[in-house]
Every structure is written in structure tokens, then in C-alpha cells.
Design a binder for these strands. Structure first.
Length: 288
DNA sequence: TATCCGTGGGC
DNA sequence: TGCCCAAGGAT
């Protein structure tokens, strides 16, 4: 079945006016936006993205800054390893690609923090290459409209890319549009909870709807672990302490952020192993 | 492949 | 109110 023309037409009339969709928004901006958008809602990304691009308008500009500046400027976007990865990617782009974000998927995949989704998103949205782009929204749209399932099953890159490829228009520009359109449909209409089927352009041919909205019976991903009291929370508290200080912080000062010494030690060791924190004679600090 | 990695908002 | 979810990636 060919849903692309209908979904594309809906997209042209209903798409959000997002910064990375503007004319002349370059490949570097697209890459930064895609990394920031990994597991992070659009509304929280937009202000941080604009600050970043004003400060570091090119990969070379970011590469010339200390990695710790990137971690500090990440503020509270979450998963701060992304900031470190983005800095390392900027260094790689500067040193290996002449300061230009590479246009092909294998070169993009080789960049730190760039996986199957992000590599294709950059190749398609920044360079107009024809590839399937599959994120959580697209997986859900296909699961429902095509497979008749309320939720996508366990992710499988090969299977998910093949499913999207089967729907993808031949023309590269139509394909680029459809990748964005399917994502937008999942984000605005075919949402995880309470899908707005009355507003859906393909409701009349959605397999899940035609089958009477059967409940999902497959295996579900295990629920996210409780954040309160987790190592993640302790890492976040430690990093917040270090972000707030311009000078190295002593172990004694860091010890005040969490009562459980063993857990705090474990979290700090993790941050050191990740390269998010370095230790020197005067204490702990963000990397130089 | 299952698990880990932040943070915040919605219901 | 606790749980689910959010343009994933690395190991």
C-alpha cells in the first residue's frame, strides 16, 4: 500500500515550524539538533540548540573549545555523555573531514554518539540522501498502520529499516519528506498514549484501527528503573556540582551531595570512566 | 541482547 | 501519584 502521498500532504499542511526545518539550517546544526533530540523532548531542546549554535557555529569552533565547556553548556538536557560525544565528533569532523559534516552514512556512523538513527537523519535531512529513517515515532506508526499492533515490538534495526524502506517513495525528495512526515505523524497524532485517530490522514486504512484496536500482547521492554535513589541520580547530582564550579572540587565537598558513601564512590568512578570528570591534585573537575 | 545512561512533564 | 514516555547510543 502507498501511504506516502497522503502522509506527505498532511505533513505539508500540519508540520511544526521547527528551527532545524528552516531554510539554510546547515548540516552542523542538523547534527547538533539530532544528538540533542536523542531521548529528549523537542521543547527542551530548542533553547539549548540555539545557544549552542550561536556559541559554536561550526564543528571547528566546538573542537577548539575544552570538552568541559560542552558538558557545562549541556546544562540539564540529560545524558551528558552526549555532550562529550558531540565534542569528540566535532574534533573528528575537523581533523578527518576538513571541518565538514560528512554526507554518507558509514562516515556518519563512525562519529561518536552517532548511531543508526542519527546517521540516516543527517544524511537525509541535511544532504537529501535517500534512506529510510526510523525513530521511535516511525516504529509506532508502522506497527499500527501496517502491522496492526498497538505498539512496536522489540527494536530490530534490520527489520525496522526494511519496513520503512518498503514504504519509501522512489524520488529522493519525496522520500526525505516522507521520513519527516512519518516522524511528525507519530509525534503529533499517532502518539503512544491516546492517539488522535480523528485527526489522522490514514485512519481509514490503518490496520490497527480496522482490526478494532487490539491490545498489545507482545513482549514489552522492562519498565525504566526508578530514578530516585539510583546511580543515575547520584551521577546527575555530582555533575551538577562540578558544572557549577569554576575550580576543582574536593572529594570532601562532593561527598556532601549524597549520604551513601559506597554509592557515591561508584557513581564518581563511573563518571571518571566515562571521561565526564577528571581528577587532579586539587580535586575533581570537568575535562579540559 | 539486556542494561545502563538524565531529566522533566503529563495523566 | 507512581508510572510512562521522550527524533537513541554504547557495550
Amino acid at each position: 500500500m502507498s501511504i506516502a502521498p497522503t502522509v506527505n500532504e498532511w505533513f505539508l499542511a500540519n508540520r511544526r515550524d521547527l528551527p532545524w526545518r528552516g531554510e539554510g539550517f546547515g548540516a552542523w546544526g542538523i547534527l547538533v539538533s539530532e544528538i540533542m533530540l536523542q531521548q529528549t523532548p523537542v521543547v527542551r531542546v530548542i533553547p539549548r540548540l540555539e545557544e549552542w549554535l550561536a556559541r559554536w557555529p561550526t564543528p571547528a569552533a566546538l573542537a577548539a573549545a575544552p570538552a568541559g565547556d560542552a558538558v557545562r553548556a549541556w546544562e540539564r538536557l540529560g545524558y551528558p555523555r552526549r555532550a562529550l560525544n558531540l565534542h569528540a565528533a566535532a574534533v573528528a569532523i575537523t581533523e578527518l573531514h576538513g571541518g565538514v559534516v560528512p554526507p554518507d552514512v558509514p562516515a556518519l556512523l563512525a562519529l561518536p554518539g552517532v548511531g543508526e538513527y542519527t546517521a540516516r537523519a543527517v544524511a537525509v535531512f541535511a544532504y537529501g540522501r535517500r534512506h529510510p529513517v526510523v525513530d521511535t515515532n516511525v516504529r509506532r506508526v508502522i506497527a499500527r498502520a501496517v502491522d496492526g499492533q498497538a505498539s512496536p515490538g522489540v527494536p530490530s534495526t534490520r527489520r525496522d529499516l526494511a519496513a520503512m524502506e518498503a514504504l519509501l517513495p522512489e524520488d529522493a525528495e519525496d522520500a526525505r519528506l516522507f521520513n519527516a512526515a512519518a516522524m511528525e505523524l507519530g509525534a503529533l497524532v499517532c502518539t503512544a498514549r491516546a492517539p488522535r485517530c480523528a485527526a489522522c490522514p490514514i485512519a481509514h486504512l490503518c490496520r490497527w484501527r480496522l482490526d478494532g484496536y487490539p491490545p498489545y500482547l507482545g513482549v514489552r521492554a522492562p519498565a525504566q528503573k526508578q530514578y530516585e535513589g539510583s546511580d543515575r541520580q547520584v551521577r546527575g547530582l555530582l555533575l551538577a556540582e562540578l558544572r557549577a564550579s569554576d575550580i576543582p572540587v574536593s572529594a570532601a565537598e562532593l561527598a556532601t551531595v549524597w549520604p551513601d558513601a559506597a554509592q557515591l564512590s561508584r557513581a564518581l568512578a563511573g563518571l571518571l570512566a566515562d571521561g565526564l570528570v577528571v581528577s587532579g591534585d586539587d580535586g575533581y573537575e570537568l575535562p579540559g
